[in-house]
C-alpha cells in the first residue's frame, strides 16, 4: 500500500491546498443530500403504523446520533496519530472536530427527548443508552475545555489526545448498550448491511440524511481546520502570500 498521502498530510501547506477541492465537493454533496432527504422524509415518506407522524424526527435524530459517535471515533484516531507520529495536523483535526461533535450529541439528546415524550411518556429515562450518550457529551466538553485551558500548544495536544483515546471506550458501550442491557431505547433500526426493519420508502430518505450529515460534518471540519492552519502557520511565507491573495479578492 502506498502511504505517501499519509506522510504528505504532515505538511499543513499541502493540506491547505488540496482541501479546497474536497471542501467544494463535500459542501455541494451535503446541501443536495440534506435537501432531498429532508423533503422526502418529512413530506413524502409514509407515516408509521403506530407512531404516526411523530416518527419523522428519526430523520434528524439518527443521523445526529451516528455522527456524534463517528466524530468521537475520528478524534480518537487523530489522537493516536498525533501521539505516535507527532503530526501537527492530527491535533488541528482533533480540536476542531470537538465542538461539532458536541453539537451533534446535543442535537441527538434534544431530539431524543422531544421524541421520547409522546412515544414513551417521558422526556428522560436513566437507561444505559441515554446515560452513555450524556457521558459522551461530557467527554466532548472535557476535550474542548482541556484544549482551551492549557496554553502550551504541545501539552494541550497531548492531553486532548489522551482524553480522546481513553473516552473512545464509551463508543462500543453506546453502540451495544441496547443489546447488553434492558433499556427503554429500542435496538438499532438503521443498519447499512443487515436486514431492514423499515420499509424501503422510509429507509432511503434516512440513508440520504445520514450521508448528508457526514458530508456536512466533513465540510464544516475542513472549513474550521483550514482556518486553524492559517492561524497556526501565520508566520510562514506561504500563509502571508495566501492572506494577501485573499485580501486582494475582498477588495
Amino acid at each position: 500500500m502506498n502511504w505517501t498521502w499519509f506522510h504528505k498530510l504532515g505538511s499543513p501547506k499541502w493540506f491547505y491546498e488540496i482541501s479546497s477541492l474536497w471542501l467544494r465537493g463535500l459542501s455541494v454533496a451535503a446541501i443536495l443530500l440534506i435537501l432531498v432527504g429532508t423533503v422526502w422524509g418529512l413530506a413524502f415518506a409514509p407515516p408509521d403504523y403506530q407512531q404516526g407522524n411523530s416518527f419523522r424526527i428519526i430523520y434528524i435524530h439518527v443521523p445526529a446520533a451516528f455522527l456524534a459517535q463517528s466524530c468521537y471515533l475520528m478524534m480518537a484516531v487523530a489522537g493516536l496519530v498525533g501521539l505516535v507520529w507527532k503530526m501537527k495536523l492530527a491535533d488541528v483535526a482533533l480540536q476542531q472536530a470537538a465542538p461539532i461533535g458536541a453539537w451533534m450529541t446535543f442535537i441527538a439528546l434534544l431530539t431524543g427527548a422531544v421524541w421520547g415524550k409522546p412515544t414513551w411518556g417521558a422526556w428522560w429515562v436513566w437507561d444505559a443508552r441515554l446515560t452513555s450518550m450524556l457521558i459522551l457529551l461530557f467527554l466532548y466538553f472535557g476535550v474542548i475545555a482541556l484544549g482551551q485551558a492549557i496554553t502550551n500548544r504541545d501539552s494541550a495536544a497531548k492531553a486532548c489526545a489522551v482524553l480522546a483515546l481513553v473516552g473512545a471506550v464509551n463508543i462500543p458501550i453506546i453502540k451495544y448498550s441496547v443489546d447488553w442491557w434492558n433499556t427503554l431505547h429500542q435496538p438499532a433500526t438503521f443498519t447499512v448491511t443487515g436486514k431492514a426493519s423499515m420499509a424501503p420508502e422510509m429507509w432511503l430518505p434516512l440513508l440520504l440524511m445520514v450521508l448528508g450529515f457526514y458530508c456536512f460534518f466533513g465540510a464544516v471540519l475542513l472549513l474550521r481546520m483550514r482556518l486553524e492552519v492559517l492561524r497556526r502557520e501565520a508566520r510562514t511565507s506561504w500563509v502571508k502570500a495566501e492572506m494577501s491573495r485573499l485580501l486582494e479578492k475582498v477588495r
Binding site: P46, P47, D48, Y49, Q50, Q51, F55, I58, T119, W120, G121, A122, V125, L184, Q186, P187, A188, T189, S197, M198, A199, E201, M202
Partner: peptide
C-alpha cells in the same frame, strides 16, 4: 408511572 417501549420496526400503515 407507565412508559411505552416501542420496537425498532417502522412500517407504513398500509403494510
Amino acid at each position: 408511572e407507565v412508559l411505552a417501549k416501542h420496537d425498532e420496526n417502522y412500517m407504513p400503515p398500509e403494510v
